[in-house]
């Protein structure tokens, strides 16, 4: 079934890696134009799911449809932006040279480089070498290198790790501005408190999807007062159930 309101559809998705069963029967829908949080402890399979969506993960079985076509289809390379967990940029180049280069790869207009650098708050560092930046600034260069192509779907693996709270709030505000323009963001995080900043939540544990919900529904269903307690309540419930 084709549905233009859905950005990502998974049905019975499994991934095996090095003999381990990393993702088990994942079934989910990510609506377009929303910020969807992919939350779970480290080792729960978040990065593997993200890699499957982007089409770089081997040994994926089951159905995975991205923007209406199977994940990994060449036509998606211009439409999906991917930001890896470790900043994947060139340390020996300037911020602008990095973003401009990745922009050229996706056919973005030259002026987009400066714009996306400004969007991540690095306008005053555009000429600085990436090697001379802090860890948080580096990961924002990596983010700008994905924003530059204005992808329909932006997939971000732990983009807010190690950032100070003000910056984190600014980035989440930016994610929502991008989503308001009809684009979709899938953002992973192991910090449960970030759940409240998302439109929808996917909770992952041990390769299984524990919940596909909204922050408000999660709190109401579990009666918890914060995201971490809600997550624990869900896990307890899953373990008590037969």
């Amino acid at each position: 079934m084709m549905n233009n309101d859905i950005a990502i559809t998974a049905r019975g998705l499994d991934v095996h890696r090095g003999g381990a069963h990393v993702l088990r029967g994942i079934t989910l829908d990510v609506p377009r134009g929303s910020v969807v949080g992919l939350l779970g402890p480290s080792g729960s399979g978040k990065s593997t799911l993200i890699r499957a969506v982007v089409g770089v993960q081997r040994n994926v079985t089951g159905d995975l449809t991205v923007l209406g076509v199977p994940a990994g289809t060449p036509a998606l390379r211009r439409r999906v932006g991917y930001v890896t967990q470790a900043p994947s940029v060139y340390d020996d180049l300037s911020v602008h040279a990095n973003v401009a280069y990745f922009g050229r790869m996706v056919g973005a207009p030259a002026a987009r480089a400066a714009e996306s650098i400004a969007e991540v708050g690095l306008a005053d560092k555009a000429r600085a070498r990436v090697a001379d930046l802090s860890g948080g600034q580096r990961s924002r260069v990596s983010l700008a290198s994905a924003l530059v192509g204005e992808p329909e779907l932006l997939v971000l693996d732990e983009p807010t790790v190690g950032l100070d709270p003000v910056l984190r709030r600014d980035l989440w505000a930016m994610f929502h501005r991008i989503a308001a323009r009809g684009r979709t963001l899938l953002v992973s995080s192991h910090v449960m408190d970030e759940a409240t900043r998302c439109d929808r939540l996917l909770l992952l544990r041990d390769g299984r999807l524990v919940a596909d919900t909204t922050p408000a529904d999660l709190m109401r269903d579990t009666g918890a007062t914060d995201a971490e307690a809600a997550f624990l309540a869900l896990i307890d419930r899953a373990e008590v159930a037969p």
Binding site: V54, V56, R77, T84, S88, Y90, V106
Partner: peptide, 13 residues
């Protein structure tokens, strides 16, 4: 090692 190759291969390159 730095992931830039993987990133490039997710683009039309």
């Amino acid at each position: 090692a730095s992931g830039t190759l993987e990133r490039l291969l997710t683009t039309p390159m």
